[in-house]
Write a protein that binds this DNA or RNA. Structure first.
Lengths: 114, 114
DNA sequence: CAGATATCAGGTTGACTGACATTC
DNA sequence: CGAATGTCAGTCCACCTGATATCT
């Protein structure tokens, strides 16, 4: 969710959920938790008062960076048995599958030194 | 579970769960369901009366084959965007990761025509 | 008015925990 | 006796459903 917010910018909860494949009702409790930790802020959207404009706080960005770091470590551990070119090949193929089946493009998993 | 039984032969519930990474208590309900459909039979183990020796029935084998077929279709749909040599490469790398992290070896996912 | 949004209450499910009787 | 096995009851969590009030 933090990564989505950082990527898409301030956005309504419904739209965020739609892009991430998370249900509206689940997004409520997820954002409650993130807001309780001060990682995001819910502000009323001026242009459309049905919506909340969700903003990531600086603390949220730090947390996101920390998570990216843990992700990189986890990915390194997962791909450890493969040689570097194989890791690159594997993640490339995996990204093509992801993009084909979901339309979602990301470089978030490119933590492999090629 | 059916694939594990077919691969390992008659075996206790606990041992089956251990090899498949399924908890003992969950194995009970799973086998209840399979037994209710007549796909497996629970027989008391003669050598060790704490154990149940689980056997796959002919109906269980048919079901397993049908599932293998559906698995092949699902895998084909998943790998559809990749060219045949890429599919082979991808499944090979994936199997190496699986084997490295779990020690589990299988040819069950080799449904790709290379 | 139809449709979208945020929210909440409730149900279903899979996976885990803790306990127990039986057997080795 | 300690350890393993099969079983059950209960917990926890992710996910989904249906409803409601507010707003466009």
């Amino acid at each position: 969710v933090l990564a989505g917010l950082e990527e898409f910018g301030p956005i309504s909860q419904a739209e965020l959920g739609r892009r991430l494949g998370i249900d509206r009702s689940d997004m409520v409790s997820t954002l409650n938790a993130l807001a309780a930790e001060g990682l995001v802020v819910r502000a009323p959207d001026e242009g459309d008062r049905r919506r909340n404009a969700i903003r990531v706080t600086p603390a949220g960005i730090s947390t996101l960076f920390a998570l990216d770091d843990r992700l990189a470590q986890a990915q390194a551990a997962l791909l450890e048995p493969l040689a570097p070119p194989e890791r690159a090949q594997f993640t490339r193929l995996l990204q093509r599958l992801l993009e084909h089946h979901t339309g979602y493009q990301t470089e978030r998993f490119d933590h492999v030194d090629v």
